[in-house]
Amino acid sequence: MNRTIALALATAVAAGSALADDITIDTTPFQSTATRAQVQADLASYKQAGVNPWSTTYQPLRSFQSSKSRAEVSNEYVASRDRVTAMTREDSGSAWLARNGQRPSGERVAGNVHTAR
Score class of each variant (00 low, 15 high):
V13F: 14
D26M: 02
L19Y: 11
A41I: 02
R117G: 12
G106W: 10
R3P: 01
D26F: 00
S92R: 14
A71N: 09
Y77L: 15
Q31D: 10
S74P: 00
D91G: 04
I25Q: 02
A8I: 13
S55F: 01
A14S: 14
P29G: 05
T11Y: 08
R83F: 14
V51P: 00
N52V: 03
V109R: 03
T24R: 07
M87R: 12
P104M: 02
T28E: 13
S80F: 14
S69I: 09
H114I: 02
T56H: 02
Q38P: 07
A98W: 10
D91R: 08
G93I: 04
A10L: 13
T28L: 09
A116E: 08
T4K: 08
K68T: 10
D42N: 13
A44Y: 11
R103C: 10
A110L: 09
S32V: 02
W54R: 06
D21I: 04
P29V: 05
E76G: 08
Q40W: 04
T88L: 11
S45Y: 01
G93K: 06
E72S: 08
H114G: 02
R3F: 14
P53E: 05
L7R: 04
Y58P: 01
T56M: 05
V113G: 03
R89L: 13
R103K: 13
R36V: 14
S45G: 04
A79L: 10
A116M: 06
N100L: 04
L19N: 06
Y77A: 11
N2H: 11
S69D: 09
T24A: 05
N52F: 03
T11F: 15
S32G: 13
Q59S: 00
V84T: 07
A95D: 09
W96T: 01
N100I: 06
A6D: 15
R108P: 00
S69C: 06
L61H: 07
V39E: 01
W96E: 03
T28C: 03
V13D: 01
A49N: 12
S105F: 05
S66Y: 04
V73F: 05
I25H: 05
L7F: 04
G111I: 10
R36P: 01
R108G: 08
L97K: 08
R62L: 00
G50W: 12
N112F: 09
A110N: 15
D82S: 06
T115P: 00
H114W: 15
L43D: 08
T33I: 09
T11M: 14
A8N: 05
H114D: 03
Q59F: 00
A49P: 01
D22H: 02
R3V: 15
Y46M: 09
Y77V: 11
D21L: 11
T57W: 00
V13W: 08
V39R: 10
S66E: 01
R81V: 01
R99L: 12
L97S: 02
S80A: 11
M1E: 04
R103A: 05
D21T: 12
R62T: 02
M1Y: 06
R81H: 12
N100H: 15
R117T: 07
V73E: 08
A6Y: 07
R36D: 14
P29Y: 07
S63M: 04
A44D: 15
R103H: 14
D42A: 13
T4G: 02
S66M: 07
V39Q: 06
P53C: 08
Q40Y: 01
